[in-house]
């Protein structure tokens, strides 16, 4: 492997200190992994092994308890996402790092196509151009056309998930984090997602993903990192 990683986690740990219950709950412990441009690193492990905590930690939705999250920016410098200034994180979220969560966060009264195009608006892409790109992704993910101009509020779980995915995929960030993006999708739509992710790889986008289905890991992962609920560190390996 000669390609330099875009993201390296060094001894990443995440614990939750719950003051009310006077407890510290370990979530992820000693996670080491690398993510490369044009490749997908899959995180696997049983429930409770802290897979989501890793993605949330990289995105700063969770604060890192210890360890480093080294990210190489488009500008070339390497910054530790665990310690970077909030403003820098916001800037990276706007232009470089995308996150497709299991839950869709959107403005309650926004049209679906605007929800999907939102990251592009923030990058300063022209409104019409952004909408056109959003529609193309929605089409590719097989979301019925009649839903595009509605707010996703009343959508089914599968529909919402497609909107959420479309949003992450349309933005084409340098690093895309995917947290069970296909959990509530039917097999046909799943295959459309697989095709989309493959095309992102071709566009040299780096991905770190948690998949519910092992066959997706087999189809898409270039590296696999297995986490275990135990507090010991785990290392990545080839599938």
């Amino acid at each position: 492997m000669t390609v330099a990683p875009i993201l390296r986690l060094e001894n990443f740990c995440k614990n939750f200190a719950l003051h009310e219950q006077d407890k510290v709950i370990p979530s992820s412990a000693q996670v080491n992994l690398s993510v490369y441009p044009g490749r997908l690193t899959a995180l696997i492990g049983p429930t409770g092994s802290g897979k989501s905590s890793v993605l949330n930690g990289i995105y700063r939705t969770y604060l890192t308890s210890s360890g480093r999250i080294l990210y190489r920016c488009a500008a070339g410098e390497e910054i530790d996402l665990a310690r970077a200034d909030d403003h820098d994180i916001l800037a990276l979220r706007r232009s470089e790092i995308g996150f497709v969560t299991q839950f869709l966060h959107f403005l309650p009264r926004q049209k679906t196509e605007d929800v999907v195009a939102q990251p592009l608006y923030q990058q300063g892409v022209d409104k019409e151009e952004a909408r056109a790109r959003a529609r193309a992704t929605l089409e590719a993910l097989n979301l019925p056309r009649r839903l595009w101009s509605l707010s996703p509020t009343t959508f089914s779980g599968g529909e919402k998930q497609r909107v959420n995915l479309a949003r992450g995929l349309t933005a084409r960030p340098r690093l895309l984090l995917l947290d069970e993006p296909t959990a509530s999708l039917d097999p046909r739509t799943c295959q459309r997602v697989v095709a989309q992710i493959k095309s992102l790889k071709k566009a040299n986008i780096a991905m770190l993903a948690i998949f519910h289905q092992m066959d997706l890991v087999k189809q898409l992962a270039d590296e696999v990192v297995e986490l275990s609920p135990a507090a010991e560190g785990v290392m990545g390996g080839q599938p």
Partner: peptide, 19 residues
């Protein structure tokens, strides 16, 4: 406590914020 809004809501650090 100060931080990104999603972090404050998802991973609050201070007992008061957690409550």
């Amino acid at each position: 406590e100060a931080g990104l809004t999603d972090q404050i809501l998802e991973d609050p650090q201070h007992a008061y914020t957690q409550r």
